[in-house]
Design a protein around this nucleic acid. Sequence first.
DNA 1: AGCACGCCGACT
DNA 2: GTCGGCGTGCTC
Length: 703
Amino acid sequence: MAISPILRIALPVALHRYFDYLLPVALSDHAALALRQGVRVLVPFRSRQIVGFLVEVSETTAVPLEKLKNAITLLDTAPLLPDKLLTLLHWVSRYYHAPLGEVLATAFPALLRRADVKDKISRKRKSNGLSESGASSTVDLLLESTELPSIPHLNREQQDAVDAIIQGWNQFKVYLLQGVTGSGKTEVYLRLIDYALQLKQQVLFLVPEISLTPQTVSRLTTRFNVPLAIFHSGLTEQQRLADWHRARTEKAAIVVGTRSAVFIPLQTPGLIIIDEEHDSAFKQEGGIAYHARDLAIMRAKIANHPILLGSATPAFETLWNADCNRYQRFFLSKRAGNAVLPRIQLLDVRAQKLTAGLSSGLLTKIQQHLTARGQVLLFLNRRGFAPLYLCHACGWIAPCKHCDSPLRLHQNPSSLRCHHCGDCQKLMEICEGCQQAQLFDLGHGTQKLEKILTAYFPGIACFRLDTDSTRKKQRLTTLLKQVQAGEPCIVIGTQILAKGHHFPAVTLVAIIDADAGLFGSGFRSLEHSGQLIIQVAGRAGRAILPGEVVVQTHHPHHPLLNQLVQAGYESFSQLALQERQRAGWPPFSHLALLRAASRHPNQAMDFLHQIKQQLSNLAISTAINPLIGSYSRPVANPPPLKLLGPIPALMEKRAGYYRAQLLFQAHKREILHQNLQIARKKLETIKAKSVRWALEVDPLELI
DNA sequence: AGCACGCCGACT
DNA sequence: GTCGGCGTGCTC
């Protein structure tokens, strides 16, 4: 029925529908009609007040009049997000099957999403006369940049990449810069950023980890005398808000950030750079499970400008896209300066005596490198002291109460911790199974390695880099600085060592256990361990000193491992991609995962069985009626949609929840999405008593 | 999703 | 007698 204007609002709640409101009492009809989509509106919602987003102003509503409430107030007169960003967010909502209100909310800093906080910054600014950059996180860094070093010469490969990308400027295209570790990818980025700055265009530069922002920012500020914005979750909300505004109002020319920065509004975007594009940290876990790289590509497409993906070890999806000429690829095959790429040797540890997992051959090498005043870097992907705490008398293993996982033994303080739910308990002396005092630790983690090596190499400093040692703010920076001082030392670390930090004095890199990754169960585990080995190896021999890389394995004849160390990542990936293709996994199919979790055993599985039952009919109808046309004959081979499972999660019980999953697999994206849409509507009607569910598009792993 | 409402067990 | 457990149902 026709009444005065209705505000159709997207709310940040897990509901796939909009809510209609009457105008705020103080607002005239005329003013309402001038409103544009994306404007924030404060509305009453059940018993609370929340910030929603205007989708449209309508003349009609299907909601009974008595149910309509007045909006409380309009928070913006004009949308804070540019139209093209709104277009992107609509796409995100459709692609990830997430409610638009939730998607929009993630694109705003928390201070602009809260009902109780008005823009504190602007009030403070007015009161004490601070400039807009006053609260920003970048001001100190700008003051630090005093020296302007000479610009390095580009080699042929670098120059070709720069030339070609500049040639294709001002239009959408995806470029892949595949350069070996230390090949000067950053210098290519800097030349392109320089070009964008000359054209007064803004650059969005994404890195996978917060810890990588300082080195990126320092490279940028020593080179360019322009204001930067920094955006990641390690900053305070005030800083995030200030830098968000600085990007939005074009006061910042370059934005450096982690995955959440992909949503930052830009006035004049000209280029996006995704550094270390293979890194799974670009994938958001929990909430809206988006992939910042994929989103950035869509963002560049909508804004019609180039995007550059850089990595020594590109993701298989990315390689495949380059192989299919969807992306243009450039190789950087030589290291910058005189540095040479270290040779990787496999060290057969079968039947060898191992000390904390180290063979005597490796121990000798460590000693040699330390004597030659080199640094040694040891990669062990197992944190804590020991992975098991068990009873010698009866075999009892200390379990986590909330997960199907053993507790890990930690030291300083001695404790048992769960690596999946974070639970921590005191060490027991007596076995809970047989009451005897014969408990001992089995296996070794980074803490034990540190302890043993400190004793083995007296007088040599040992630094441990893992999530436990770097949890405190600034701790990682301090540790990195100590290592970068260059004195002979041993660095022991987990994944952090694969993250692009610089260790110029490292001459020996050793991967303690390559086998764990090679035989992982996930379809991506081979890809990830290949990337890990190459990235960790790449830490060696960056400066003048030549490097050596040792990989310990019980499978020295593993074909793909040999391909990797002898022929390199590129030919390893070609081989591994063929295996992917045979198995039909991404990028040769598209996946979505329906996860369910319940506090009660079996309920998640029962729920998914029920869903599958209902969807199977639908899957068949898809086969005979693909939505592209209305053919009535069945599509034989391959089936357009497969529903696999449900199966219990690999670790069925985690943090007190029993988990299961149902996998959707399709060879065409449209088919997957059409079915997910129908599935989602079904899910909302089914009574899911005490079962939580979530739909994840493009899962990285099937957990 | 939140958050209220509602109906049954152990506490000041 | 109440505090609180989470089952159910609704949000313009």
